[in-house]
Nucleic acid binder design. Structure first.
Length: 567
RNA sequence: GCACCCGUAGCUCAGUUGGAUAGAGCAAUAGCCUCCGACGCUAUGUGCCGCCGGUUCGACUCCGGCCGGGUGUACCA
């Protein structure tokens, strides 16, 4: 049974008010000692024409004989409920243990499809630390929606089309060396790409040549296409290596090039609906409804070529037809807010009501204390280097703490990568991250290693006992540390729902961090395996340990972070 | 100029969609490994919630204005 729902039902039947109103009003008190659930009576003051404290006191009496509610206490205008601890504890722990990895799942999203577009790096460019924001947030969101029962589709909208490939082809033809490129593709391609920009400052005609080559590419020229395909293949191999490290995968790598033959239709539709207008030689859709000063959405450039807005609209239409999505989420940085606002508005104007399901999930920048991240100048911090550095550091810590560990490398990988993912998922998305090795590799306090450590400790305790957990007597779970932990286990699904509502994985991150903290407090203050602990108390506490470990593992999974059995 | 976002403890950030005494981590100080693992636990404190008005029983939260910072602002993505 759900104690919250039970209490809401009962208040509803007593007051005769709308259930929705009650459900919305009830809240968790700021402190455990105030109770498990609170009903602020202020909202009744007007209709009942009584002071809130009086209402609270009257309601409290109705709960005096209730087997599920230990106590209902009026405090000021609040009516605070204390659940029966034994019933609540038993209810929660047995549910976690019975459902295992399925605990905290829901069928909320049954038969609805959510698309998550994320990561989307540019081909032939390094996969740098900035890409991790989209990758980590998207990966986590996909798992969160999946947890809630949605069918999810993971889309990698590769940046594999555009003038940049003209540049790359020109650079390759001038300075490319196949033997070097085979050995270290991305670095070498980056090198000649950077060189292109340096040279182009002296010889602007290179830019024209690049545009010319992109045009050839669009026209299906053999040489250009072959080169492009080659660059794309080489890049994918490198990207997939990083994705493997992160445990990230995709259902589709259809990038911008995939939509290159699907844009004519979009242009036709917009023209037929009379939305296209000429402006300074380009074909645009004017968007006065977004504000007088909003620039129009360019559909065709003055040279007749398409632009990324056209491609994104074509992609959205394709996705609607292919997946009939409920939500189409774009995990793309804040700088592109205007772009998405524009294309969503264009799609609405085209009369596509499914466009309402499109959503831009933005996120902040990865900044550097001194220099700016710029591919053009070759100043990049490779994501792979950051991950390896973190794994290396973890290895050193393990080396000093537990030199005899067997699967050192595997554990170091999970912890090292988890630590990096955690720092990208710990705050609200829109906050910028200032990159520093110190903070990135800080494993203390609020960090993945902290949570992983708590889990490993729990598993260690379980390994040291052979007591059968079934049929524990939960009336023996009496301390505040234990009960607070139990209430938090019960709140897992709420955290997941909040995360999905706001498209904010950090709700889950914060949840699991608090869970780890409460778990640490619990096992530090309540002896579990000590000899003088009675067997049946041991049994009940072990059940709580097992349940806590289960939920920590499930929550970490939603963040893309792996739990380790020992560390 | 205009649009959007942000301003909370020394630092990095939460604050449950208007409610009870504004909270965590880091940093600082003092304790805790004859009890399961010290990447841990316990204790100690700091806030004109950027400023000024308004809305109301009640505002960190909503509205208006100002100050300060970030991002974007048509043929790149």
């Amino acid at each position: 049974m759900d104690f919250r729902e039970y209490t809401i039902d009962k208040i509803t039947s007593i007051t005769g008010l709308d259930r929705e109103t009650i459900a919305k009003a009830v809240e968790t008190p700021p402190e455990q000692k105030l109770g498990d659930l609170a009903f602020p009576c202020f909202i009744l003051a007007r209709t009942l024409k009584k002071a809130p404290p009086v209402i609270a006191a009257e309601l409290a009496e109705k709960f005096s004989e209730d087997e599920n509610i230990e106590k209902a206490q009026a405090v000021g205008g609040y009516l605070n409920f204390f659940y029966s601890r034994t019933a609540f504890t038993k209810n929660t722990i047995t549910e976690v243990l019975e459902k295992g990895a399925d605990y905290g799942k829901s069928d909320l999203g049954k038969d609805k499809t959510v698309l998550v577009e994320y990561s989307s790096p540019n081909i032939a460019k390094p996969f740098h630390i900035g890409h991790l924001f989209s990758t980590a947030v998207g990966h986590s969101l996909e798992r969160i929606y999946s947890q809630l029962g949605y069918d999810t589709v993971k889309l990698n909208h590769l940046g594999d089309w555009g003038t940049q490939f003209g540049k790359l082809i020109v650079a390759y033809k001038l300075w490319g060396d196949d033997s070097v490129i085979e050995k270290d593709p991305i670095n070498e391609l980056l090198k000649i790409y950077v060189k292109f920009h340096e040279e182009a400052e002296k010889k602007p005609e290179l830019e024209d040549e690049a545009r010319e080559y992109f045009k050839k590419l669009e026209e299906g020229d053999d040489e250009a296409t072959t080169l492009w395909q080659h660059f794309r293949d080489l890049s994918l191999v490198e990207f997939k290596r990083v994705y493997d490290m992160l445990g990230v995968s995709f259902d589709s790598y259809n990038g911008e090039s995939f939509y290159s033959d699907k844009m004519d239709e979009v242009v036709d539709i917009l023209r037929d609906k009379g939305l296209l207008t000429d402006s300074e030689g380009a074909k645009v859709v004017e968007l006065p409804e977004l504000g007088e000063n909003t620039p129009p959405c360019i559909i065709l450039k003055s040279d007749g070529a398409t632009i990324y807005a056209t491609r994104d609209i074509a992609a959205a239409l394709y996705r609607h037809r292919t997946y009939d999505f409920y939500k189409n989420i774009y995990v793309v940085g804040t700088p592109q807010s205007l772009h998405f606002k524009q294309i969503f508005a264009v799609m609405e104007k085209a009369g596509w009501d499914w466009a309402k399901g499109c959503e831009h999930v933005n996120f902040g920048l990865v900044k550097f204390p001194d220099k700016k991240l710029s591919t053009r100048h070759g100043d990049v911090v490779f994501l792979e280097d950051v991950l390896n550095e973190s794994i290396q550091k973890t290895c050193e810590i393990i080396e000093t703490n537990s030199p005899n560990m067997e699967n050192k490398d595997e554990v170091a990988k999970k912890i090292g990568i988890g630590a990096i993912l955690y720092t990208f998922l710990k705050n609200s998305r829109e906050k910028d991250i200032v990159f520093s090795w110190d903070s990135m590799l800080d494993f203390e306090g609020e960090s993945a290693p902290y949570v992983q450590y708590s889990y490993a400790r729990g598993k260690s305790i379980l390994r040291r006992s052979d007591i059968e957990i079934a049929d524990a007597d939960y009336s023996l779970v009496t301390t505040d540390e234990e009960y607070t932990l139990v209430t938090h286990l019960n709140a897992f699904l709420d955290a997941v729902k909040d995360a999905a509502d706001k498209n904010e994985p950090f709700y889950v991150n914060r949840y699991v961090t608090i869970l780890a903290r409460l778990f640490n407090k619990f096992y530090n203050s309540c002896p579990i395996l000590k000899d003088d602990v009675p067997e049946d108390v041991k049994k009940a506490r072990l059940a709580l340990v097992k349940a806590s470990c289960q939920v920590i593992k499930s929550a970490l999974y939603l963040l893309g972070i792996e739990a380790v059995e020992s560390m």
